[in-house]
Amino acid sequence: MIEVHQITKNYQLGKAKFTALSDISLTIQPGEMVAIQGRSGAGKTTLFNILGCLDTMDSGTYRLDGQQVEKMKDAELAALRCKKIGFVLQEFALINQQSVLFNVMLPLFFDKMAYRTMKTRAMEALHKVGIANLARHKTNQLSGGQRQRVAIARALVNYPEIILADEPTGALDSKTAGQIMQLISELNQQGMTILLITHDDKMAAYCQRRIVIEDGKIIEDQLTQ
């Protein structure tokens, strides 16, 4: 479960201080699929960074599965990212010169696991997203949809509890985007918590809950299904 309470994040832009998030509080139950929406600069990415343990907050508390995140050090946050969170990003975030298999195995490099087990787990994740036959291909030989499947397989490989997806369909055509959202929904139906940042209302419609952020504050939080 994700529980954030009154989190605030400021950025220093030259001499001016910019408040990206102001007193944000929210709770996300395990197995929820939540869309986070808002205009550019509203604070979505800052929230994504904090929920993903990629950045720290200035004030407030964040509990992830009962663990007090804001007190954690860099190495502890890294371990938390490795074990509990999978990321899917707009531009796929893959190493192009490397094989699909290597890309999917990547999170396991930071876990204590034998290389052979890593391969098995990566193949398992590739099967789950339906591209096991592409394991030996280089990622730059794949289509956009296939690449995003690789990214999803990588997000799944460590059996995380949460998947954070930042505009996962932003670089895809509408048909492929629909397929990817279908895949993400299936993962959610299997019990995975999904947090989806998107501008696209069609994509947000796949989620059961919609949170809208504006000027660093939650202005809407409602169940849609």
């Binding site: 993903g52 860099d74 190495a75 890294a78 876990d111």
Partner: peptide, 15 residues
């Protein structure tokens, strides 16, 4: 870019 990917995947800054 690879380093950032490693970071997303659970690599600490130190590592």
């Amino acid at each position: 870019q690879n380093q950032i990917l490693y970071f997303f995947c659970g690599c600490s800054r130190k590592r």
